[in-house]
């Protein structure tokens, strides 16, 4: 059972206090978008063996959504950050690249 640090509360909490929200950094496609765009937004999800960006909500705490970067194999957590972040922070990306030289990047 994993633990994550809520970037707002600064407290490290266990999974039972969190609510999972799936892949992070999705771009919403609304009316006017093509079927392919909508499909990729609504249905297509990454399932990487390794580095992954996820949404988590501190449901039993401050109620805020935040984002986490972690390794789906080793469960190493590279960092957590605010949900109001359109793409992973550069410093975090650099850290991951250093730890996982073969990583293809977040996109």
């Amino acid at each position: 059972m994993l633990t994550l640090t809520c970037p707002y509360c600064g407290v490290t909490v266990e999974e039972t206090e969190l609510y999972p929200g799936g892949e992070a950094h999705l771009k919403r496609f609304g009316p006017g978008s093509t079927d392919a765009e909508f499909e990729s937004y609504m249905f297509a999800r990454k399932n990487p063996k390794g580095v992954h960006f996820e949404r988590w909500r501190h449901a039993y705490g401050c109620g805020k959504w935040f984002l986490a970067a972690r390794d789906t194999v080793t469960w190493e957590v590279f960092g957590t950050y605010s949900a109001q972040t359109p793409e992973p922070p550069a410093a975090l990306v650099a850290t991951i690249k250093q730890k996982r030289p073969g990583w293809e990047g977040w996109k």
Binding site: C9, V11, V13, T16, E17, A59, Y60, G61, C62
Partner: peptide, 11 residues
């Protein structure tokens, strides 16, 4: 102030 879970409910 610690917001958490008490068994199955928010506290």
């Amino acid at each position: 102030m610690r917001r958490t879970r008490s068994a199955q409910v928010a506290a």
